[in-house]
Simulated assay, not measured.
Amino acid sequence: MCRSIKTLRPPYTEDVTEEDVRAAALQYVRKISGFRAPAAHNAEAFDRAVEAITMASEELLASLQVRGAH
């Protein structure tokens, strides 16, 4: 699933921006919803999902402990 989403944790990626995390969240929501761009009546739910997944992903990345990292 979501083959275009890149790993966003060290050592795979050192400099992760908020835009990187949001792009991954957007790709995920597009994939599971089946919509590249939702219709107007689904836009709010789509955007909320992207935001929630972005926040959850940022929390996850901030919490991970990578062995061997300084």
Rank of each mutant, 00 (worst) to 15 (best):
M1H: 05
C2N: 10
C2M: 07
C2P: 03
C2Q: 09
I5C: 00
I5T: 00
T7P: 02
L8H: 11
L8Y: 13
R9V: 15
R9A: 14
R9H: 14
R9K: 13
P10M: 10
P10G: 10
P11A: 14
Y12K: 06
Y12V: 11
T13L: 15
T13Y: 07
T13F: 11
T13E: 12
E14H: 08
V16M: 11
V16L: 12
V16N: 10
E18T: 09
D20H: 09
D20G: 02
V21I: 03
A23V: 03
A24Y: 02
A25I: 01
A25D: 00
L26C: 07
L26K: 05
L26R: 03
L26F: 05
Q27V: 11
Y28F: 15
Y28A: 14
R30V: 14
K31Q: 15
K31R: 08
I32P: 01
S33H: 00
S33P: 01
G34K: 00
G34M: 05
G34I: 02
F35T: 05
F35Q: 00
F35L: 09
R36L: 15
R36C: 09
A37S: 07
A37T: 14
A37W: 04
P38N: 03
P38T: 10
A39D: 07
A40S: 04
H41Q: 04
H41E: 07
N42F: 05
N42K: 05
N42D: 12
E44M: 02
A45D: 12
A45L: 14
A45W: 10
D47A: 04
R48M: 07
E51P: 05
A52L: 02
M55F: 06
M55D: 13
M55C: 08
M55V: 09
A56Y: 03
A56E: 04
S57K: 06
E58D: 09
E58R: 15
E59P: 03
L60S: 08
A62L: 14
V66C: 01
V66S: 02
G68W: 08
G68I: 02
A69S: 12
A69I: 03
A69V: 01
H70A: 12
H70D: 14
